[in-house]
């Protein structure tokens, strides 16, 4: 794909999303603790080079949509006992996300 070409943004602010378990090797910026979990897009941040490419010296190519996604801490940690409204906000690239409908949320989580 051409330099700077934008991978289309598939999600909108307010939309529910699930984080995929892509089992990628190498440098990824999607921490394990949100994989397989469902949250909500709260902001479209912009288009960025994929860190998975940058980490191996690929400094050109398409740019990927990046979102801020909000999760409830009680959805991340089954034993979370504090305020049920407590939140975790984190950035996730488009290719790590799916619609929750297309994901069986809990079965995707590999421990």
């Amino acid at each position: 794909m051409a330099d700077g070409e934008r991978i289309p943004a598939r999600f909108q602010v307010g939309e529910r999303v699930a984080v995929l378990e892509l089992n990628k090797a190498g440098h990824v910026r999607t921490p394990h603790y949100i994989r397989g979990r469902a949250g909500e897009i709260i902001e479209f941040v912009g288009y960025f080079l994929n860190p998975e490419d940058l980490s191996v010296g690929i400094t050109s190519g398409p740019v990927y949509p990046l979102y801020r996604v909000r999760f409830l801490l009680k959805d991340l940690w089954p034993d979370y006992a504090r305020n049920p409204g407590d939140e975790l906000c984190i950035e996730v690239y488009d290719h790590w996300l799916a619609s929750p409908a297309s994901e069986s949320m809990n079965s995707t989580r590999a421990e």
Partner: peptide, 15 residues
């Protein structure tokens, strides 16, 4: 220079 990106550095100590 463009010899080492931040992600390459991280990849280095993560691997």
């Amino acid at each position: 220079r463009r010899l080492i990106s931040l992600d390459e550095l991280r990849h280095g100590f993560e691997s």
